[in-house]
Simulated assay, not measured.
Amino acid sequence: MSSLSSWDRGSAASLFDRIRGEERSSSPDAQLTSLISSVKRQLDRVLNTRPGNCRSAPDLGVIDLNDATQGSADIRSRIREAIRQCICDYEPRIVQVEVSFSDNISTPLEMAFRVTAHVRLDELEQVTSFNVHMDSHRHYRMI
């Protein structure tokens, strides 16, 4: 996805947000907050797509849990890397993406990941992090 690396990161809103007419906020902090919210909404869509379901981008999405278990002893590492690669390939508004597995002692059967990335808007840059949880229906939720 090298063509996305030259994409103008000056807009806080995703394409769909701009089509719906959502305006840019006036202060830089509000713009950055809007950008982070937009990125989370987009990642919610992208991470819940399965490879092969989008004809224009066959690799879009994260492997299904059942597919991740085949031929791999470490399911967490495969899913963690699939999430990181998907974010790097399909969300150009964030850079330096790191994904780590979060151990949750209270719910040991739930898979959770922590995503840390740099968000840039014009000359502003902020490190942000959020949690990605896989629910019982195998959908990823941004928290």
Rank of each mutant, 00 (worst) to 15 (best):
H139K: 13
E81L: 14
S77E: 15
F101T: 10
T128S: 11
F101A: 13
V132C: 11
T49M: 09
Q70Y: 06
E123Y: 02
S106D: 14
H118N: 12
R141E: 06
D29W: 01
F113H: 05
A68N: 02
V62W: 07
A13I: 01
P58Y: 08
S106M: 05
L43D: 02
P108K: 06
H118T: 14
M111G: 03
A73D: 09
I87F: 07
N131K: 07
L124P: 00
W7V: 13
I63L: 15
A82S: 15
D122R: 08
N131D: 04
D44Y: 07
D59Q: 13
D74M: 08
F113C: 07
R78N: 11
E81S: 14
S56Q: 12
R114C: 04
R76N: 12
C86P: 00
E98I: 09
I79L: 15
S136W: 00
L124R: 10
N131Y: 04
A82W: 02
L65Y: 10
L60Q: 10
D64N: 06
E110K: 11
Q70F: 10
P92S: 11
R114I: 10
S14W: 05
L121F: 14
F101L: 04
R141K: 11
L121R: 07
S77N: 09
V39M: 03
T128Q: 10
Q126R: 15
A82G: 03
K40G: 00
S14C: 11
S27Y: 06
R41K: 12
L109V: 04
D67M: 07
P28G: 01
S34N: 03
I36D: 06
R80A: 10
T49K: 04
E23G: 05
G10E: 14
R45T: 09
V132Y: 02
P51T: 09
D89F: 02
L43A: 06
D89K: 09
D122L: 09
T49H: 05
Q85E: 12
E22S: 03
E98G: 12
R20V: 04
N66S: 13
V46I: 15
C86N: 13
D59F: 11
H118M: 13
D44C: 11
D17W: 05
L65G: 00
S5N: 09
Q126E: 14
N53E: 15
S129C: 05
G21V: 05
I36R: 08
Q96T: 08
Q42W: 01
D64V: 03
Q31V: 07
P92L: 08
S6M: 10
S11W: 14
D44G: 15
R114H: 08
M1P: 08
P28M: 10
S129A: 10
P51H: 10
I79A: 07
